[in-house]
Design a protein around this nucleic acid. Structure first.
Length: 814
RNA sequence: GCCGGGGUGGCGGAAUGGAAGACGCAACGGACUUAAAAUCCGUUGGGAGCUUGCUCCCGUGAGGGUUCGAGUCCCUCUCCCGGCACCA
């Protein structure tokens, strides 16, 4: 008997598939399409098990959908710009481009080894001028419509390296390379106005099936809150100041105002404050401290009395104005009303500085208003000490106070979002140059469309010192103003790589990309992506930015749909010994080694079988051996079947039911939630059962061969190489890829016999084999003859019987 | 703190409110072999009983509830994982 020689088989079919170009996607408007997409790999390293899992899931779906008759698009590309290339350049003196392309060729070779059904002709590499040119094009389109703008914003700055650091390069508030304390430095940076789309991004009605948690995470990230904008009056400065609150019902409990050290009015306050020096010192101190997340949390609430006072518009009361380090400038109005009795932060602040606590909402659990409280009461209640609003429910009070203020022109209803504009400036080399020119006369001028792309200069020196590597490239910086033609300077910031990944899926979906970002007609045909697959780590940024891009492009008339990804599957991590695979833990399993040892089909099968896609997958060498054994059994069974001779046909019907059951099970497992693990289990059950039947020699060879060829088709999306080989061995000349997925008939599934479970008082007391479709009475009469069951009913009063046809009979006795 | 998700054999994991533990791994027994590996055939949640292949009891984090019947639905608690977090 010939042994299962996986390496020979896999090499053979990968070559044949490539030669026949079977995966090339074609635009065919009359055919129903299916777009399967996996998040493209970052070109910083080799392929790891996480990628194998991601791409295998996509590949099964793609192959299955083709067999189901869809016109499938299944592309791949490389996320090729970004920091790692530049870091490698600094560390090992290699050219970022060379480094990136080396990695790409490794990754491409690995992907091909995995036997994935990609349309390679559509490969996208984001660091090519052919691609990033369109990043620049869209930037300018956005610019024209006021969707990009420049503003000062703090950036992480390492004073020793003299460079800007990305958030991930700041470790414990220190520079990852030299360990100096990272400072915040105000830099003028480019922003995309994603906040204009906050409301549209909160609308998920165009999405069919995303994990609930991803939608939730996006909603929280956007963070819409409806409340009231209230105008206080600053007495000594004689100007108004706005605060935002979601609890206008607590307005009468305000005992101070707290404003952010970054608030524009601070300079005015310093001028008028009786404690000028102290206030100035405090503000400077706060502004110096690092803004990293951990630090902010650790920082204790601190503030300083400015000596300035404000008038509460509700009751004309004068309250002190403080500057507080806990007031964010980036959210709301940069100033908050302090209500210690009903806000825990304000409470802590008030306790620390001995500010009064005034209760204006009565907790229903209180019998009377307490003299003192130990914590703020943030719940609902009845309004007290609130003038005309006394006795009103706080819930209603929120709106009533707001309306009342509106009539007095001292406030209005307002909506605020946590979402901030998207900073796309990177003071880095390896990215898309921002296509803008600075002219002394004309100011900020976008590069003309016909002059795109603004090419990234090659072979430049990257030291990691100084602001941006591009600033030192004279030929790049020096240019002419597109408007007036005078000497001008080029922008040296490059774009965030999230810009690249916000529309790559549109580029894939376009056959013709010669002189345009994509072909509208083709993109409208293929899009939206029917199934997107990737890691949960992109739940917010990448997915939100892509949604924004598509919505903005729709508004600009480039596309006709408004969601990029209709269905999303977030696959779990591949872990070993309970931890994510990583070099530092030394628990990495190299996919290529596994392919060498067991073959791709076995690797794919194991990775699909070991856990459902959305759960973490524990790597197990023993587990992969189990899948290896399964494929060998399939291989050996195939030989047995090809040599099988028998005239018996007693089990033909049973075999027919078995294959229909398997087809149904596998199809449904794929359809509802991609339960590949149970689909594979069903195929294993099938082979176990068919083995027995072959040994019994009671099936006809015609039936056996017919059923077996259906099974090979089921196996194909999971283990395509071996399936294709078996298919050919059976004498077929065509590729399995173009075969129709087997169908099942429900009526064949009605078996000759069903097992009815007999329960007495809900406990299983027996089971009987009967022909299907028996009535309750018939079943009951049968069990009376069955001693084992009957003795549980004997001498008891039958209260009632519950009967589920062909399934269960439960007899309730007393 | 807030918001999600989840606790099922020795392990990975199955179970439209209807036989808990499919399938795989590990383990054990047997066949083949001089022997081992590989392969094939069995057994395998825990406990008790005897006539040794059958009977009964217990069992899905803990406690309660709904139901003829709960891993599944409801309530309380507990532990684990993930996200967010001075967002006014």
């Amino acid at each position: 008997m010939k042994k299962y020689n996986f390496s020979e088989i896999e090499e053979k079919w990968q070559k044949k598939w490539e030669e026949a170009e079977i995966y090339r996607a074609k635009f065919r408007s009359e055919k129903k399409k299916f777009y399967v997409l996996e998040m493209f790999p970052y070109t910083s390293a080799q392929i790891h098990m996480g990628h194998v899992r991601n791409y295998t899931i996509g590949d099964v779906i793609a192959r299955y959908k083709v067999m189901k008759g869809y016109n499938v698009l299944h592309p791949i590309g490389y996320d090729a710009f970004g920091l790692p290339a530049e870091n490698a350049a600094i560390k090992h003196k290699v050219d970022p481009k060379e480094w990136t392309y080396n990695n790409i060729s490794t990754i491409r070779r690995q992907l091909k080894k995995l036997g994935l059904s990609y349309c390679w002709e559509r490969e996208v590499i984001t660091c090519t001028p052919e691609y990033y040119r369109w990043n620049q094009f869209f930037f300018i389109e956005f610019f024209k419509r006021g969707l990009v703008y420049k503003k000062k914003s703090p950036a992480n700055w390492c004073p020793s390296c003299q460079t800007v650091l990305a958030n991930e390069q700041v470790v414990d508030g220190k520079c990852w390379r030299c360990g100096s304390i990272v400072e915040q430095k105000e830099l003028s940076q480019w922003f995309i106005k994603i906040t204009d789309y906050a409301e549209k991004l909160l609308d998920f009605s165009g999405i069919k099936n995303w994990p609930e948690r991803v939608i939730l995470m996006q909603k929280n990230w956007i963070g819409k809150s409806t409340g009231c904008e209230i105008v206080f009056h600053l007495v000594e400065i004689n100007q108004p100041i706005k605060v935002f609150t979601t609890r206008a019902d607590t307005l009468f409990g305000v005992t101070f105002l707290a404003i952010s050290p970054y608030h524009p009015v601070v300079s005015e306050i310093i001028k008028k404050s009786p404690y000028k020096e102290e206030v100035k010192k405090f503000v400077e101190k706060v502004r110096k401290t690092s803004l990293s997340v951990e630090d902010v949390l650790k920082t204790e609430k601190e503030g300083i009395d400015t000596g300035i006072s404000a008038i509460n518009p509700a009751n004309g009361e004068k309250v002190p104005v403080w500057i507080g380090n806990y007031v964010l400038m980036e959210y709301g109005t940069g100033a908050v009303m302090g209500v210690p009795a009903h806000d825990q932060r304000d409470f802590e602040f008030a306790k620390k500085y001995n500010l009064p606590v005034k209760i204006v909402i009565k907790n229903p659990e209180w019998e009377k208003i307490p003299e003192e409280i130990e914590a703020a009461y943030e719940g609902e209640g009845i309004m007290v000490n609130s003038g005309i609003f006394d006795g009103l429910e706080s819930n209603k009070g929120k709106e009533e106070v707001c309306k009342w203020l509106e009539r007095k022109r001292k406030g209005k209803e307002a909506v605020y979002y946590k979402l901030r504009d998207w900073c796309i400036s990177r003071q880095r080399y390896w990215g898309t140059p921002i296509p803008v020119v600075y002219c002394e006369k004309c100011g900020i001028v976008p590069v003309k469309e016909e002059d795109l792309p603004v090419k990234l200069p090659e072979k430049i020196e990257i030291t990691g010192k100084g602001k941006s590597p591009l600033e030192n490239v004279e030929e790049f910086v020096k240019c002419k103003c597109p408007e007036c033609g005078r000497d001008a300077r080029r922008e040296t910031d490059t774009m965030d790589t999230f810009v690249d990944s916000s529309w790559y899926f549109l580029r894939y979906a376009s056959g013709d990309t010669e002189n345009k970002p994509f072909d509208k007609k083709e993109v409208n045909y293929w899009m939206p992506v029917d199934q997107y697959i990737g890691g949960i780590e992109h739940a917010i940024l990448h997915l939100l930015y892509s949604r924004f891009f598509v919505k903005a492009l729709k508004d600009m008339g480039y596309v006709d749909f408004d969601e990029p990804f209709e269905n999303l599957l977030c696959q779990g991590m591949v872990i070993k010994d309970g931890a994510k695979m990583s070099k530092s833990k030394g628990n990495v399993v190299d996919p290529e080694e596994m392919i060498e040892k067991y073959g791709v089909d076995t690797l794919r099968l194991f990775i699909l079988f070991a856990a459902p896609p959305e759960l973490d997958l524990e790597w197990s060498e023993k587990g992969i051996e189990g899948c290896w054994r399964f494929l060998n059994r399939v291989w050996n069974l195939n030989q047995k079947i090809s040599e099988y001779k028998s005239s018996g046909n007693g089990n033909d019907k049973k075999l027919e039911i078995l294959i229909h059951k398997t087809v149904k099970g596998v199809s449904e497992d794929i359809e509802k939630g991609f339960h590949f693990n149970t689909a594979i289990a069903k195929m294993m059950e099938f082979t176990n059962a068919i083995t027995k039947m072959i040994n019994e020699k009671n099936v006809s060879e015609i039936k056996l061969k017919e059923v077996w060829s259906k099974f090979i088709k089921l196996l194909y999306p999971f283990a395509p190489h071996i399936s294709e080989e078996l298919w050919e061995m059976a004498g077929n000349k065509n590729f399995l890829f173009f075969e129709k997925w087997p169908e099942f008939k429900e009526e064949i599934l009605t078996e000759e016999k069903v097992t009815i479970v007999i329960q007495v008082n809900g406990k299983v007391r027996g089971k009987i084999e009967v022909p299907p479709g028996l009535k309750e009475e018939e079943v009951f009469n049968l069990i009376l003859k069955d001693e084992k069951i009957a003795r549980w009913i004997e001498g008891k009063e039958i209260v009632k019987k519950i009967f589920v046809p062909d399934k269960i009979l439960n007899i309730v006795v007393k």
